[in-house]
Structure formats: structure tokens, C-alpha cells
């Protein structure tokens, strides 16, 4: 068996601000096989988007990858220079962003924005690039691509724009797509369609997909594996069934219980008390201990990553009993 598609090992990405060092991504490890879907779950500010940007080399100053390894098909990306990153971006690794209203440039036609993505990586004529654009637009379910190519983004609905953004990500047949909450801003029906299509596209082409989201119900239907992130760390990971059915970390449990369910109608909704901690004042201790019902005095020590069962990791000294 060759190297996995993506292997992230001990990744640390910190922001060096005047107020101090912000550990946005702090010792994150996971792996992804071809054609599989990994859900990266967490609240706002948990470092899930920053993990995605790190894999693309899109971290801006004062942020910097300080440690760890990001291996794509066995090749370590953290040692690449900017030109090599650029050759990878949009080519081998593509990204889809959260807000489709903002990701397409409002003053450029769709064909301009698509053709430039092809020609940034392939030495082809504009006509050849347009052929590829039409093909991909068809794949993401956009009818009459020729007409659409000549339009501007403001002539599209939100769902259509996100399809175009997905089409742009697919243009160069990437090995890996990082999707940063791409359905959060869309209607539920459109969200369903896009999830279904993305799943099929990955299965068919063997593309790996990292789906960044705060929505566990999306992950449940889509992902093969799940990493739950909290305050820059992966607190728990494993297959989607394991995590959803037998959550071990108190934070994962809290997240699952926060999802309103029909069986609990009339009862007050559960919530996780407190707020996400400031990443500035993060020590070595478990970042969740202030909000955790299971917290013990020894939680002030750095919780090491353990392997409770095959294929799972956990970063908690006092896990909930399964």
C-alpha cells in the first residue's frame, strides 16, 4: 500500500500578534485516503478553517506553520516554496469557501474566472480551457453552460454560485478538495443536492474531500471519518459511526446533545455552558476543562492523545463511558 492521499502530522500553525502567540492550529494530526471524505467539525474559532488554509499554503502573516508535516501523496508540503505551492493550489488541492456570494469576483465574467484557473496550470488555448469549463459546469448540474459562462456572478442565485465555485474546484481534477462550510449559506434543499453531488463526485473520481463544518448532521450523512476540533486541537477522531454513536470526549457529547431532536420536544434545549476560550491564553491544559462537567484537577496537565480503540484517537483524561 502506497502513502495515503493526505497525512497531516503534528501540524502547528500559530499567529504571532502583538498581543501574543495565537495557537490557531495546535498539534493536529489526521489522514485521508483517496475517495474518502473527512469531516472536520468544530465551533467558530476552533481552528478548522485554519487547518484547511494550512494545507493550501494560504496562511497569511502574522500566521506561520511552525511545526508538523503535511504530506500529499507522500510529499511534504511544508518545505515547498511559494512557486511550488502555487503549482499545487487549484491543481492538486482545491478549496471551496463558505460564502458563495463572496468567493466569485463580482466584476469578472464566469468564463474569465474559470479559464484563468485552467490556464494557471495547463498550457492550453482558451478554447480548450472553455471546453473543460463546459464539461465541469455540466457535471455540477448547470444547464446551458455556454450562456452561463458569459454571465456575471450577480446574475446567479447563491446555490448556482456555489455550484460554479465547486466547478472551479473540479476544473483541474484535483486529488484533494477542501470544502470550508460550503453549504452553510444555502437553503436546506440546495444543501442536500450539493452534498449528494459532492459525495458522488468524490466516489467516482477518487478525490479526497475534507469537509469543514460545524454541523454534525451534515457530517453524519456525508463523511467517512470525523475529526472533532476544539481550540486548535483535535480532541477526538474516528469513523463517523463510532463518533456519533459512541462519543468519548465530553465536548463531542455536548455537541451531539446540542442538536435539537424530536424526541426531546418540549424540554429545554441542551447547551454547552460557557464560551470558546481565547486562543491567546491557552496553556498546555485541556482547553475544554472550564466548560467540562467531568473536569478533574489533573485536567490542568497536557492531555496526551490516546488510542481508545482501533482507528480512533482521543485527547481526554476522563472520557465519558461509552
Amino acid at each position: 500500500m502506497s502513502a495515503p492521499l493526505l497525512e497531516v502530522d503534528g501540524l502547528r500553525m500559530h499567529f504571532f500578534t502583538k498581543a501574543g502567540v495565537v495557537k490557531a492550529v495546535d498539534d493536529v494530526s489526521f489522514r485521508l485516503e483517496r475517495g474518502k471524505i473527512l469531516g472536520l467539525v468544530g465551533e467558530s474559532g476552533s481552528g478548522k478553517s485554519m487547518t484547511g488554509y494550512s494545507i493550501l499554503g494560504l496562511v497569511d502573516a502574522p500566521g506561520r506553520i511552525v511545526a508538523g508535516r503535511i504530506a500529499l501523496n507522500g510529499r511534504d508540503l511544508t518545505r515547498l516554496d511559494e512557486a511550488a505551492w502555487r503549482g499545487l493550489r487549484g491543481n492538486r488541492v482545491a478549496m471551496i469557501f463558505q460564502d458563495p456570494m463572496m468567493t466569485l469576483n463580482p466584476v469578472l465574467r464566469i468564463d474569465t474566472q474559470m479559464v484563468e484557473a485552467v490556464r494557471a496550470h495547463h498550457d492550453v488555448s482558451r478554447e480548450q480551457a472553455l471546453d473543460r469549463c463546459r464539461e465541469v459546469l455540466g457535471r455540477v448540474g448547470i444547464a446551458s453552460p455556454d450562456e452561463r459562462l458569459r454571465a456575471y456572478p450577480h446574475q446567479f442565485s447563491g446555490g448556482m454560485r456555489q455550484r460554479v465555485a465547486i466547478a472551479i474546484a473540479l476544473l483541474n481534477k484535483p486529488d484533494l478538495i477542501i470544502a470550508d462550510e460550503p453549504t452553510t449559506a444555502l437553503d436546506v434543499t440546495i444543501q442536500g443536492q450539493i452534498l449528494f453531488e459532492m459525495q458522488n463526485l468524490c466516489r467516482e473520481s477518487g478525490t479526497g474531500l475534507i469537509w469543514i463544518t460545524h454541523d454534525l448532521s451534515v457530517v453524519a450523512g456525508l463523511a467517512d471519518d470525523v475529526c472533532v476540533m476544539y481550540a486548535g486541537r483535535v480532541v477526538e477522531s474516528g469513523s463517523v459511526d463510532e463518533i456519533l454513536d459512541r462519543p468519548l470526549h465530553p465536548y463531542t457529547r455536548g455537541l451531539l446533545e446540542s442538536v435539537p431532536s424530536r424526541n426531546e420536544r418540549g424540554r429545554p434545549l441542551r447547551q454547552i455552558a460557557g464560551m470558546t476560550p481565547s486562543l491567546l491564553r491557552l496553556g498546555e491544559a485541556c482547553a475544554f476543562r472550564d466548560r467540562c462537567s467531568q473536569a478533574q484537577p489533573d485536567c490542568a496537565a497536557a492531555p496526551a492523545s490516546s488510542v481508545p480503540s482501533a482507528g480512533r484517537t482521543l485527547r481526554c483524561l476522563h472520557p465519558a463511558s461509552p
Binding site: 493550489r89 482545491a94 478549496m95 469557501f97
Partner: peptide
């Protein structure tokens, strides 16, 4: 975002 997206395209 469109600037970040343009960079993510490898431009």
C-alpha cells in the same frame, strides 16, 4: 474572499 479564492486557484 474572492482574492483568497483567486489565490486558491493557484493564480
Amino acid at each position: 474572499d474572492y482574492v483568497k479564492f483567486a489565490r486558491a486557484k493557484g493564480l
